[in-house]
Structures are given as C-alpha cells and as structure tokens.
Computed example of a mutant assay.
Amino acid sequence: MTKKPHRPHWENYYENEPDCFSVEGEDLKHDFERLQLAMEMVGFLPTTRKRIFSLLSAILHLGNIRYKKKIYRDDSIDICNPEVLPVVSELLEVKEEMLFEALTTRKTVTVGEKLIVPYKLAEAGTVRDSMAKSLYSALFDWIVFRINHALLNQRDLEESAKILSIGVLDIFGFEDYESNSFEQFCINFANERLQHYFNQHIFKLEQEEYRAEGITWHNIDYIDNTSCINLISKKPTALLHLLDEECNFPQATNQTLLDKFKRQHEGNSYIEFPAVMEPAFIIKHYAGKVKYGVKDFREKNTDHMRPDIVALLKSSKNAFICGLIGIDPVATFRWAVLRAYFRAMVAFRDAGKRHVERRSGESGHVFTQLCSGHIVHLGELQRLL
C-alpha cells in the first residue's frame, strides 16, 4: 500500500469558481451527448433530464456561496457573494429571501416565542454543505430507482419467475492520505467489510466444502480481519457507537472522544494512539496502518439538514424538488402507481357505463356489479386522489 498525496476535503470539490474548463485528451461534448443518449434509452424524457441538470447546477452554485463575519457584530455572518443567491433561488424555485434566511440563521421555538439565531461561521458552512449533500443523495437514489424500474421485465413481476439482475458495485478504493478524516474512516471500513466477505466466501467456506467432500488440496492461509471489523462496528464499545454517544453530549470535544476511544480499546492490537499529544488514532487495516485525525469526526457524523432547510425546499414551486425531499423514492413511485391505477379504474368504469347506456339504455348496473370488487371504496379514494 502506498501513500497518496493529500486530497482536499469533499466541500472543496464543488467550491470552485463557475468557470468552464477542458480536460486534455477528453471530448467532454461527446461524453455529454453519450450521457444524454443513455438517459433517453432508459426512459428519461427531455423535461426530466432538464430537471436533473438544473438541480445539479443548483448544487454546484450552492457550493460557491461564501460567508464572512459581520463587522462590529459578534458571531453574526453575511454572504460574501450575494450575486450567487438569485441563481440558486431560480434553479431551486424558492424565494431568494427565504434562501438567505435559511443559510444564515436558524429558528428556535421556545415557550411562547420563536427565536431567530444567526449561525456562526463554521455552522453556516456545515448547513450549506448538508443541504448540497442531501439534495445530491436524494437525486442519486431517485435516478437509481428510475433506472431499475426502466430495466424491469414484465416477467420479473410474476411470482413464479426467476428474477435476472446485474449488480454493479461502485465504491472508493482503500484510502490513506497525509491527512485522513471521517470520510476515509467510513470508506476504509466499507473496504474491510468487502475484504471479510471475500475471505469468507472465497477461502473459508470454499475450503470447508473441500473438507466435507474429502478433496485433497493445499490449505490456503489468509488474514482474518474480523477483529478489525468488531473494533469499528461491534456493539456496545465499537468506535462508531462510541462516536454516536459523544455526538449526543453537548459538551463533548475532540479530546473527550479520543479519551473514550483510549479507555475502551487501549491494549487492542488493532488500534494505536500516537506517543505525542496528537488528536489522532491509528487502525491496523488489512491493507496497512492508517492514521485518522479526530477533528470534525463528531460534526460529520451528525451531518443532516435542519428543519429550516427542509421547509425551504418543500416550499419550492418545482414539484420534482418537493418530491425528493423527505420522501422515500420507492414509496413515491408506489403511490403514483396506486393513484394511476384508481384513476384508470374510474375512467374505465365511466366509459363502460356510457357504452352500456348507449347500447341498451340501461343504467350500467350490470357493469358496475362486475367491477364491484375493485371499486368498493372508490368514492373515498377519489376524494384523496
């Protein structure tokens, strides 16, 4: 395992000036045309593609927002480049003044009154990033769901049919930079789990099957990383669970988190602590040792959208954005299918009645009886739909 050069944090990826650029040896125009074609092939209409790209553009512009402290005002902040706000506001289809308030202040309700508290400089950056990450995550999940549905075969919906599928696993490789934080910790844990799965199915279970069948072979030794996984995730004293505990204590600091790690796991061969007073710990992964700085571990572990941001996005005039916020995309699709089904039933019933009335002058009573199994509570559902 070789050391890699330091890579900037996630927020710096999208915090760039909105200038166009080219990549040597790459035809970006051709790549974008291929992307458009691929999206069209799986059923993304031009209007849907426009919504997707508009939201991605909003996320990137959101990352260009900069904050500064107000002069002569303790802890109060302002936006350095307010010209970005109208762009984000237009793309998200929310009111500009509401966007400004949500990105610079938080509302706190106490007994009998509502307080508006300005964010501190670091807090505002976290709120902005949480908003961008949450929007991107919701969009990603929605796209994956739509693609999966587009690739469904009608036979897959039959209970007796064997479902054929292709699984694609796309994750970061093992990471070790000059400065490693919570992101690398999570990525490397995922890789540990994958390595454990590989060990279990390629080495352990396969060799047990050879023994059971009496096959002669040379035993293959492999590194069992179960203890490393337990250190990170096994309740109740795993590092992730200790981190969750510290996130619930208002007075917790980087040092109290590190002290808790030391108390619970000092002597564990899979974790070390630097001899000098350094806010870091070292984990012995299957691929090698990695040092993690605990700075921002707690903040990143509690990364989420505040209710003010959720309310802002739900106020959007764009139904696509409203549908992404706080709603499971699977539940959204199922509700759409259910609604379409009952609307179709209503149209089918009405058309059938008209047809019967034209043919025989009857009221359509026979037809209604035939459909009664489906429309017992249709009146109630129509009001809901």
Rank of each mutant, 00 (worst) to 15 (best):
E175H: 07
N188K: 04
I171Y: 06
F203Y: 15
H196C: 01
Y177C: 01
Q154V: 06
L152Y: 07
D170I: 09
Y136T: 03
I202R: 14
E209Y: 06
W217R: 08
E213Q: 15
E175I: 06
I215Q: 08
S160G: 04
L139A: 03
E183F: 07
E206K: 15
E208F: 11
A132R: 12
Q184A: 06
I215A: 09
S179W: 06
L152S: 11
A138H: 03
E175M: 11
S134W: 01
A132N: 05
L205K: 14
K162V: 10
E159Q: 14
H201C: 03
W217M: 05
F172T: 11
L194W: 09
N153W: 05
F185A: 00
S179I: 08
Y136M: 03
I163A: 12
E178T: 01
S137T: 10
L135E: 02
G214E: 09
A212K: 15
A161W: 07
D224S: 04
L135F: 05
S165H: 13
H218Y: 11
L164S: 15
D176I: 01
N219L: 00
C228M: 06
N219S: 09
S134G: 14
D170P: 00
E178Y: 05
N225D: 13
S227K: 15
E208Q: 15
N188R: 02
C186M: 09
F182Q: 08
F198L: 10
E209G: 08
A132H: 13
L194D: 00
V144P: 00
I171M: 06
I220L: 10
S134Q: 12
D141G: 01
I166L: 13
T226M: 04
D170A: 12
E158A: 14
